[in-house]
């Protein structure tokens, strides 16, 4: 088993943190993991993306040819990375921010109203945690418990955020299970 997931969005949307959560959760599960961030001269207000690979064998390249899943937190990210997604891959879209969908018909699409769902459980700022919950639920990469462990590993030293983030992750799982 080897799965590559690309997370992309504006700087500040918690894009890299979603990658950390998946990475820590994968390691907790006993998988080999790599986390490859884009880095450029731009910082604030620019775009951010990272690719996380999980495998039950040793991972060779941290750079992916074709990600199996794409998480697009804004429309420019969908435009930029849609062509790279593997056939029969899955694209997760932040429908709180944009309603456009991919032009390809060989990929599965899940629109997640991240901000609305996060608000429902207490805070808009948990939008990225709702999304990572939905991603792990839909792909089956991590269970809800493993995802929460991943969040705790990624945010070590910031324990006061754990309860709120846990609620947001659980909301993401519930969204996939119930379709709402």
């Amino acid at each position: 088993m080897i799965t590559r997931t690309t997370f992309a969005g504006f700087g500040g949307q918690g894009v890299l943190l979603m990658g950390y959560v998946l990475c820590h959760g994968g390691m907790h599960k006993g998988l080999d993991v790599t986390y490859f961030p884009s880095y450029g001269a731009e910082m604030r207000g620019g775009t951010a993306n990272c690719t996380v690979t999980l495998s039950d064998k040793k991972i060779a390249s941290p750079v992916a040819s074709k990600p199996d899943a794409l998480v697009a937190m804004n429309y420019p990210s969908l435009e930029k990375f849609e062509p790279t997604v593997a056939e029969n891959g899955t694209v997760f879209l932040n429908s709180s921010l944009f309603t456009e969908t991919p032009s390809r018909d060989d990929i599965e699409v899940l629109q997640v109203p991240t901000a609305e769902l996060a608000r429902e459980v207490g805070s808009d700022r948990g939008a990225n945690m709702v999304m990572i919950g939905a991603v792990c639920a839909k792909t089956g990469l991590l269970t809800v418990e493993e995802t929460i462990k991943g969040m705790e590993g990624a945010l070590k030293g910031k324990e006061k955020f754990f309860p709120q983030n846990q609620k947001a992750i659980e909301r993401g799982f519930a969204f996939v299970a119930d379709g709402k």
Partner: peptide, 10 residues
Amino acid sequence: DGLMGQVMEP
């Protein structure tokens, strides 16, 4: 290289 410096692994 710069990539190796940024990649996170266990």
